[in-house]
Design a protein around this nucleic acid. Structure first.
Length: 671
DNA sequence: TACAAGTAAGTTTTT
DNA sequence: CTTACTTGTA
């Protein structure tokens, strides 16, 4: 190490090597954090309450490992989003410089993707496989559903969405499909036999066309590691120090992946909070984190209970919400942050009054000097913010929305990418169908036949041109498509390839969407800009499937405001984040929890979700709900506060009834 | 036979 | 608002 470092001032005798460390760990971490950061070999479980410095602990441990001489490339940091991994490595970089960039980091899915591309051959995985996102999966399921004759029979057969749901859930819970139907979808029991047959064809179809869905990425990596010893050893030797964030939201397959990857060394640090487990719909079970010590005997457990984020008033609400849970959790948060502010339960007249309250308070906060990017509005379901979005637009308050619909899933973006996907993987029948059906005169029937001839040929463009001869009036269009594909194969830069597709696709799009094609064009330009940084088509397509750009900036706003954006987010997408001021809207029974939360387990998870929402706030927390809300079945009904707030004492969460603001006309130009 | 248009129903959360 | 299935047209 080139830099001479000043020795620690503290009298306590640090381990000898600590003297040379640039970071003074003992001075900036609390005892529990320090214990976790100093841990070096063997399994470690950190139970970290909300705001207890969990991320900080991970970052400092990365830094300390590297300072202790561990090569960065031997560290694997698995997080819930890649963004989280990048952010952590960036912060670690502030501590120890750019050595942190050598750390391998990402999500389980992105890690599995890379591993399978490079080492998947022993279990029959082609390196150019295509990743199916959820809607691609549904497309395939739907195709098979029709092909197998389940579409137009008298008996009602489940829709593609439900089918994809069951199939995926079974895998995420590591259950046989039959058992999954019995357990979570008993109403589909009568179709169990057909669903099983459909699922089998789905597996065969994916295999035949080099397609892997999200679940395959995890399951097949587990398969690879189980069955192929050289690969297991290779990966386990490469990543000698593993760190896993948000462990409470992992499922059994992910736990198995961890076990297999760590087989050679058991150097695993898992970090999580059982009270913040909110992904059971993805097969996660908060008990997994409790069973970590059983998976790795000899696990050291460290608890972080001091909260550095929120003032006590906010923690009081969160603690009371979670204390009424049926399962008891492992810790109670406390803070030394004093502050007079009490969170407020705001009862609004109706949804629009709620929106205007939020908008107005946001403007007041801005007057008080709180930047917009220090404020967030959270909600249970992404459509809950629709009315608020209109109100914010009306008042020129810039915002970004996280979670919910992604622009990557809109038809025009999928169309565009499908043209590139067939170039990367000519066997990708889903994408072939998609781009063929865009052509006038080609419907599902003809498209399927064309796919059959094209998929197995060595030169798809030529095969397509040959097949087009028999296609009647669609011939010339198919010829153009063939030309396009040839042109795409000749180009190497993704952004350039997108430009080539745009040239072909934009006219088709204008015809297909005469109402709003300008907006869609802007989306595609945005996409082109995003893809400018990619050098390989494969990596670009993989990123689009695994880490899609989902911050859809409100399309009204063309320019970046200096003061940043107000954040609108689902609670799920707000996980791990924090803001100075948080609004939680639609905290009403019937919305949060929603009507689909029926079982006690579902409700417990909703309660944890409420806990997550509340603990995102540092200084101010406003929870609101409308007194009258519209119900599709019953018209306007009286709204009640969420049941999770009922047990919270009024001293801890006082209620304010919202008076109509006088300066504002009731009927704005919204709607 | 194959495609396009029209009508009717269902809707969380995410990799 | 999207998706599914029926009916209408070439």
């Amino acid at each position: 190490m080139a830099d001479q470092v000043i020795a620690l001032k503290r009298d306590s005798s640090p381990p000898p090597d600590e003297r040379n460390f640039r970071v003074k760990y003992a001075e900036v971490l609390n005892p529990a954090q320090l214990e976790a950061v100093r841990h070096r070999e063997g399994p470690l479980l950190v139970i970290a309450g909300a705001g207890s410095g969990k991320t900080r602990t991970l970052i400092y441990r990365v830094a300390r490992l590297i300072e202790s001489g561990v090569p960065p490339a031997a560290i694997l940091l698995l997080t819930f989003t890649r963004r989280a991994a990048q952010e952590m490595l960036r912060r670690a970089g502030h501590l120890i410089g750019d050595r942190s960039q050598g750390v391998a980091g990402g999500t389980f899915h992105s890690f599995a993707h890379l591993a399978l591309r490079r080492f998947g051959a022993p279990i029959g995985i082609q390196p150019n496989f295509t990743i199916l996102d959820r809607s691609d999966m549904e497309d395939v399921v739907n195709l098979l559903r029709t092909r197998m004759g389940f579409a137009s029979r008298e008996q009602r057969f489940p829709k593609k969405r439900a089918l994809a749901e069951v199939v995926s859930m079974a895998r995420n819970k590591s259950r046989a499909l039959e058992a999954e139907i019995e357990a979570d979808f008993p109403h589909l029991r009568e179709h169990a036999g057909d669903i099983l047959r459909l699922a089998a064809s789905y597996e065969a179809y994916k295999h035949e066309h080099a397609l892997l869905d999200y679940d395959d990425l995890l399951c097949r990596l587990a398969e690879l590691l189980r069955t192929d010893q050289p690969t297991r050893h290779r990966l386990s030797d490469t990543y000698r120090y593993m760190m896993i964030d948000e462990y409470q939201d992992t499922n059994l397959i992910q736990a198995e992946l961890v076990r297999l990857l760590a087989a050679a060394h058991h150097n695993v640090m898992a970090v999580g909070d059982d009270a913040q487990s909110i992904y059971s719909f993805r097969g996660a079970n908060f008990r997994n984190i409790m069973e970590f010590p059983a998976l790795f005997p000899g696990t050291k457990v460290v608890k972080l209970e001091e909260n550095y984020r929120s003032i006590q008033g906010i923690l009081d609400v969160a603690n009371e919400v979670i204390s009424l849970a049926r399962e008891k959790y492992t810790k109670v948060l406390f803070t030394r942050r004093e502050g007079g502010f009490r969170p407020l339960l705001v009862r609004a007249q109706d949804e629009h009054t709620q929106s205007r309250f939020v908008a107005q308070r946001v403007l007041e906060l801005r007057e008080e000097g709180v930047a917009l990017d220090e404020i967030a509005v959270l909600f249970r379901s992404s459509f809950h913010s629709f009315d608020l979005e209109l109100e914010l637009q009306r008042r020129d308050i810039p915002f970004i929305k996280r979670g919910g619909f992604k622009f990557i899933e809109t038809a025009h973006v999928k169309d565009l990418l499908a043209h590139l996907r067939v170039v990367a993987n000519p066997a990708d029948a889903v994408s072939w169908l998609r781009i063929l059906m865009l052509i006038r005169g080609v419907g599902s029937r003809r498209a399927e036949r064309l796919v059959e001839t094209v998929v197995d040929s060595a030169d798809p463009a030529t095969a397509l041109a040959a097949a087009a001869k028999a296609a009647g009036k669609a011939e010339s269009e198919l010829g153009r498509l063939s030309g396009l594909l040839a042109e795409l194969r000749a180009s190497a830069r993704p952004a350039e390839q997108i430009a080539i597709v745009l040239n072909y696709y934009l006219p088709l799009m204008r015809e297909a969407y005469p109402d709003d094609y300008p907006k869609r064009e802007r989306d595609l330009e945005h996409l082109q800009a995003i893809t400018e940084r990619y050098r390989s088509l494969e990596s670009m397509l993989a990123d689009m499937a695994l880490e899609p750009p989902n911050d859809s900036i409100g399309d009204v706003l063309a320019i970046d405001p200096d003061e940043g954006y107000l954040t609108l987010s689902t609670i799920h997408s707000a996980k791990g984040l924090e803001w100075k001021v948080v609004f939680l809207i639609w905290a009403a029974d019937g919305r949060f929890p929603g009507p689909q939360s029926a079982s006690p387990e579902d409700l417990e998870e909703e309660r944890r979700l409420m806990y997550v929402a509340g603990t995102r706030a540092r200084d101010e927390l406003y929870i609101s709900y409308p007194m009258y809300m519209f119900d599709r079945a019953m018209g306007y009904v009286m709204g009640r506060a969420s049941r999770f707030l009922e047990g919270v004492r009024p001293e801890v969460l006082p209620t304010a009834v919202l008076e109509e603001a006088a300066e504002e006309p009731l009927d704005g130009e919204g709607k």
